[in-house]
Design a protein around this nucleic acid. Sequence first.
DNA 1: TTAAATTCCGACCGAAATAGTAGGGAATGA
DNA 2: TCATTCCCTACTATTTCGGTCGGAATTTAA
Lengths: 139, 139
Amino acid sequence: MRLSTKGRYGVSAMYELSTYYDERSVSLKEIAQKQEYSMAYLEQLFSTLKKERLITSQRGAKGGYKLAKPPEKITVGDIMRALEGPIELSECVGGSEDYKCNKSSICVTKDIWKEVNDSINTVIDNITLKDLLDKYKSD
Amino acid sequence: MRLSTKGRYGVSAMYELSTYYDERSVSLKEIAQKQEYSMAYLEQLFSTLKKERLITSQRGAKGGYKLAKPPEKITVGDIMRALEGPIELSECVGGSEDYKCNKSSICVTKDIWKEVNDSINTVIDNITLKDLLDKYKSD
DNA sequence: TTAAATTCCGACCGAAATAGTAGGGAATGA
DNA sequence: TCATTCCCTACTATTTCGGTCGGAATTTAA
């Protein structure tokens, strides 16, 4: 039971961007080196993050990426959902309301997955990049 | 971001067993039919559940499976961890204490995964099979 | 004692997801 | 112009998922 690296890589990379927010763009190369990730792989994640409008980009020499919004307006949940899709522990939970559920025991367990979903979302939606910045400073 | 079916199938199947706790063994065939799961697949899950001593088995005609403990002593967390392994959103969290972490931003984000882990565990460790039984009765 | 029901066990399998690689094109700044 | 950087598409190796298959061992009942 584990998450993919996408979310982890993404949050770390976004944190890196947030340390330079309002200062300058940061290139993929720089982030990849600092975090020891594959640059080409990070590139794919950034492409997604850009589509989701969490970052902006600047091409060419001295180019790079920046946060599209201030760190206090970007949550870990935003990043996770952008990269990993919605959190759905059971198709019964997130899906359409009309889901036909003739298996009694599934209906009983359904609420469990919803509860777990909610608790995960609560946690990740309540941590912003700013929180991480503050935390690191105080450490 | 989603869990495998193992945990879901497992919890549903265990719920089924719990409805007959202290009454009789339930065969795989019966559970598979009731829940419309593949019998051969369920078999693998049950093999794991048995190794983890959550169920006992009786071979031969009139055989089947039973809960190894009363429903109030088996949590959803027990079942999930048996089938899906420990919850580890990051190798940084569950692993050894000496994990060398020279990437500052990972250390900052590490606590996030721990928090998420903990919140999931809290939820699933606080729901027993008995709770599910009671819930279904009252519905 | 034989037949049917059942668990037990190991091997196999196709599809999808994961975690990347590789290569070239297009914009930009110096 | 040229090095730097993002952009895009395609490919690939490995693992996990969800499941199948065949047969052996055990038990009950006829």
